[in-house]
Design a protein around this nucleic acid. Structure first.
Lengths: 73, 73
DNA sequence: CTAAATTTGGGTAATTCGGGCG
DNA sequence: TATGTCCGAATTACCCAAATTT
């Protein structure tokens, strides 16, 4: 790969509102996912949660594009 | 504002009730379309389905005003 | 430091899920 | 085959006030 010796990638963090918009759910629901351990997160010094974009993107990528395994007739 | 870097496609998702209203059917029917592979969808971390608005709009736009589309299965 | 917007937490209604029936 | 409805269980949405972030 092509890393110039970069260790520790810039972990892009998303706010609850961002994640909620992506999933079309309420920010509160995202909080529940975090509490349930379904979503990784870090906390700010004030106690707010921040979510890694990579994780969220991966979860959103689990779409069923019309016909993955469509059986033809 | 947040200029965090816009590069993802604004994938607007709709809830089952939204899609159902647009098609004038029960949400259950929308679920069946999804299961049948006729409609793509993603799942929330809780298992609920969310449908891409673009896909739904495209399907809604496939209206038939003439009988030239009289093809069915 | 002040101000506006967001997030947190708890509790309750609405929605969705899944299977089965007509 | 396709759609609508019933049921129970799970998930999600909206209500509030206080704290945090920018």
């Amino acid at each position: 790969m092509t890393a110039h010796g970069m260790q520790g990638e810039p972990e892009v963090l998303l706010t609850p509102a961002e994640v909620a918009s992506l999933f079309r759910v309420d920010p509160k629901t995202v909080t529940r996912w975090a509490k349930a351990g379904k979503l990784s997160y870090i906390r700010t010094l004030g106690g707010h949660r921040r979510y890694p974009e990579a994780e969220v993107r991966a979860l959103l990528g689990a779409a069923t594009t019309s016909d993955d395994d469509a059986k033809k007739d």
